[in-house]
Design a protein around this nucleic acid. Structure first.
Lengths: 224, 224
DNA sequence: CAGGCTTCTCAGCCGCCTCTCAGGCCGGGT
DNA sequence: ACCCGGCCTGAGAGGCGGCTGAGAAGCCTG
């Protein structure tokens, strides 16, 4: 279980890190809001512990920003007592739980575990890979901010690729899962990969959908 | 007449309790949003007085949640003056009345009685998507300011779509929920979507009721 | 019973999507 | 350098999903 702790007070941060590691968590630290936001975006954490009073960007805004980007990682907010922000604000912004300093260490761990437990049935599940986002329920795909129009087959293909991002998937696998056959000419996969590339690879940064000669395709998964 | 008062400030809560009891109400108290939500769900109250700034869950969200569960108990919201939420927000979420702190005690009681008087014929809050508004109780639909006349079937279809606005719903889902069958020719859905479009999509900004080929339909709901 | 409204079926049309095919490109092996 | 096999892609045919006008059947109201 990976935890990101965003906390500017060094001693507090170090204490949390040691304590949580002792509980079996993998802990990363960020010491200001900007850093925290960046790591939360790219780190694939299971839960984020977020102080409110932070240099550069407040925890308040980090949370708001993440939610605006449809990032639904569970967030537990920490505040100094009598802070200017109040608990209701935090929860309204999309935090999942809230603790007031000073807090009992035992309580913190308990709440974290509770968050992780309900973590399973999270909110709108949006699949991501790099700056691609695919929302199965809304049937919507975006690259960064811009929406991408896909036909049903293209959508199904991208969904499959994004679910296996960073892995190499063979054309036969793709045929089985997207076309639901296995004795079709694999060329159709090539054709559709081509279609997808033209729609999602346009601003040619780094081609997200790579060909692995002789093996299949790989959708690059981290935003880099 | 049973009243639930959800208010975290103990003195304020106690004062309201004493005062309302003197007026002949049976008064229960809740001191945070979670507790309030729980009691409102199970308590069969005639009216709820709901502070907005609450620990754990804001009054704002308590109200939203209750309405989402189709609990139409009359709610009178209380806010600190100059709160970040304004009256419109509260009423939009399905509150029935609204008072700004500090308020006159006499006014509170008067408003409560007014709520109780109209309490019987409740109205479910209005469903919205984009500039469409649908009032299930009054069977009324408006696009912007202008009313829209719908037949019962059209109304049921729009209600279903608007409850799932921004999601793609398949024709089979629609058949199940609006027609209450699943082995009917899906063409009837197409036909009724056509009817709806002609009535609600007229000023074609961007067609609100989109076809997602191979998947179903999506009613655009702006904000998302 | 007539008239109007609503619901639903049907068939034709249109256009997008899907898939095939063939030719070209590229990388790797001999 | 040459060839071969894997991959890409433009073109285009065909199919199928979805839209719509027409009209039949059902239902309520007067």
């Amino acid at each position: 279980m990976r935890v990101l702790v965003v906390e500017d007070e060094r001693r507090m941060a170090a204490a949390l890190q040691r304590g949580l590691q002792a509980e079996g968590f993998a802990v990363d630290l960020a010491h200001d809001g900007e850093d925290g936001l960046h790591q939360a975006r790219h780190g694939e954490y299971d839960v984020v512990v977020l102080d409110i009073m932070l240099p550069r960007i407040s925890g308040y805004n980090v949370c708001k920003q993440l939610r605006a980007e449809e990032n639904w990682v569970p967030i537990l907010m920490l505040s100094a007592k009598d802070g200017e922000y109040d608990m209701a604000d935090g929860l309204d912004l999309g935090a999942d739980d809230y603790l007031t300093k000073p807090f009992s260490y035992v309580v913190l761990v308990a709440r974290l575990r509770a968050l992780l437990r309900r973590g399973a049935n999270r909110r709108p599940s949006v699949l991501r890979a790099g700056d691609l986002a695919l929302d199965p329920a809304r049937r919507r795909v975006t690259r960064g901010e811009t929406p991408v129009e896909l036909t049903p087959r293209e959508f199904a293909l991208l969904e499959f690729l994004i679910r296996h991002h960073d892995e190499v998937v063979s054309k036969t696998e793709i045929l089985e899962h997207v076309w639901d056959t296995f004795d079709t000419d694999p060329n159709v996969v090539e054709v559709y990969v081509g279609y997808l590339r033209r729609k999602i690879d346009v601003p040619f940064s780094r081609n997200a959908l790579q060909t692995v000669r002789g093996a299949g395709y790989r959708l690059a998964g981290d935003g880099g």
